[in-house]
Amino acid sequence: MTSSTLPPLPPLPRPYQDTAAYWEAAREHRFIIQKCNNCGEYQFYPRGVCSHCLSSDLAWQDASGRGEVYSFSINYRAPHPGFADKTPFVLALVTLAEGPRMMTNIVDCDPDTVQIGMAVTVTFDDVTEEITLPKFRPAYTKVR
């Protein structure tokens, strides 16, 4: 198969100052989160300062990788050519055990079984050699 016959990729993150460490960890299948050394709050997404107190004194921690579905939507239309072969997919907001909320996809399950409040756990989608996206699957699913 030549590269021209592969389906197009979804839009992928270009790591930058605030986010390089996060994406590097994800590539190693580690899910990390920022905690502020000044006020003690967690935050997601990664920033150069704390969004609670504006301190630059932030530390990376391994996150628990656990969370629950705050809301979700089964998407039947591809928002980008890179999703054309992926519909329907579950777009979701997950509240992490550490407190902050993040956007993700719920995978490894029948979309119709996803519910608000469902316990989920992180899993890693190696989209390219450089980029791995943390996604979530139902907490009861066996690790593949």
Partner: peptide, 20 residues
């Protein structure tokens, strides 16, 4: 759809790759 982005710079890189 109108989005043809391949490379997401800035905080929206925490939404667009998931198909927002």
């Amino acid at each position: 759809p109108v989005s043809q982005a391949t490379d997401v710079f800035g905080p929206t890189q925490f939404e667009e790759p998931y198909g927002i």
